[in-house]
Nucleic acid binder design. Structure first.
Lengths: 240, 240
DNA sequence: CGCAACATTGACCTCTCTCAACTCTGGTGG
DNA sequence: CCACCAGAGTTGAGAGAGGTCAATGTTGCG
């Protein structure tokens, strides 16, 4: 049940603008330095149907995947056979970086919506950026961002985690857009598993936030009505 | 109450072996590429007393700090004025990388034991490794490691989190050593704050694990007696 | 020696999980 | 087009895990 990726030409470049690899993608390769005549980052993008796998836990780490549209989740199967969601990846983000250090993917990755991704060989990416300090810096900066991701998971209460999750997700899905409404790509169960909560708790807190007029929810559609109040609940102070 | 770092010569190079910057530290600078005649990584190490600060939340990000001995914690003060511990840094690890992306430190860092650290200008580090693909790769790999750190924080039960924390800490404090006993550098309150638990809960679970003969605890001294059982509790499956 | 910080333990209460019933939604086939 | 079904989501009731508060013990430092 492993990666079964269909390659189709894809011209939609929405979200490429916010992709961490966008500069590398548009860089002309220097033939002297790069083994390949072509830019290894600028790949034909691939269409993945919902529930299809990108890679599986314990597979050798070879590629990272830039999400162009749709959404990917990573997860582990724990000793009880239950799925434990580790992260979500949205358009403009890169899946697979968790494998850099160990040389294998510690989690499995599957599409939770029909998605389009660009597969990039990690070795070729490193070689390609080695002689380009600007690209190096860009890549290191994007790794730096990942270090801080999900830093709200060690909060005490379920409300704190759900509030922080909503803000995080809306921010990431809107890429600098100020609009405060999105279509959630994942189920309540996925959210619960990611946050360490029962899916019923997620549902109840959504209802509670809605009754308090902090958010509006209709199935997967969610909009923030009172972001200040949500931030208050997360308790997280930000630098001016 | 900011960084007040005393510079004293320091010759103890214990743990340098496991430092992520060790190769960069011992690299001869190429005068043509490096503005500075000297290696910016190979700094005089600095002594920091317990409770002294390395940097504060919202300060401009300029340096990272390699911990040579002792221990550092990072934390935020939340909207209620309570301290929220974000991470611990042990000998061989690097503090400050959380600031890469935003350009400021999102958390404050203080020593929780008398410590010795090497302060490294991040700009100079990047310049220094730019022409050394091997060092680049080393640094990127160490960032990759950080991405996976603390991935046990989104577990449901307190026992899972505490068990995973104990295993994580003993692994990191022993650097490849097989010995299963260490001196905890942080208080029960710090552990609780880091794991999203009350310090009483941490204490109770330590007692419970001790009664079950999984660990032995005497104040800060902790040893693992039954690591298989602890791993079982964490529920985390590892790739053979 | 005495104080302050840290740690442990108990009692009680609240939050969240579990289990179960029910509703809603979208997809499939007749 | 509608009926049916499976998966997703909501809601309620009861139980258990973990938080809070308080008392007491322990450790280390001036």
């Amino acid at each position: 049940m492993n990666a079964r990726i269909k390659s189709k030409p894809q011209t939609d470049s929405s979200h490429c603008e916010y992709c961490m690899l966008t500069k590398a993608c548009h860089q002309q390769p220097k033939s002297e330095n790069c083994k390949h005549a072509c830019n290894p980052v600028k790949q034909q993008s691939q269409h993945i149907k919902r529930h299809e796998s990108l890679y599986s836990e314990c597979n050798a780490f070879k590629c990272v995947y830039a999400v162009r549209s749709g959404a990917i989740k990573t997860f582990q199967i724990n000793l009880n056979g239950q799925e434990h969601v580790r992260n979500f990846y949205l358009p403009g983000e890169i899946v697979g970086l968790e494998g850099i250090q160990s040389g294998y993917y510690p989690y499995s990755a599957i599409a939770i919506q029909d998605s389009v991704v660009c597969e990039v060989s990690f070795e070729e990416l490193l070689t390609f950026i080695a002689d380009e300090p600007a690209l190096q810096r860009e890549f290191i900066s994007s790794l730096g961002q990942r270090i801080n991701q999900g830093n709200y998971l060690n909060t005490t209460t379920a409300e704190q985690r759900v509030a922080a999750f909503i803000i995080d997700l809306i921010t990431r899905l809107n890429c600098n857009n100020t609009q405060l409404a999105v279509e959630l790509p994942m189920s309540r169960s996925d959210i619960g598993s990611f946050l360490g909560l029962a899916h019923e708790t997620v549902s109840r807190i959504f209802t509670r936030f809605q009754q308090a007029n902090y958010i509006a929810v209709k199935s997967k559609r969610i909009s923030i009505l009172n972001i200040e109040q949500l931030k208050q609940i997360t308790q997280i102070a930000t630098c001016n």
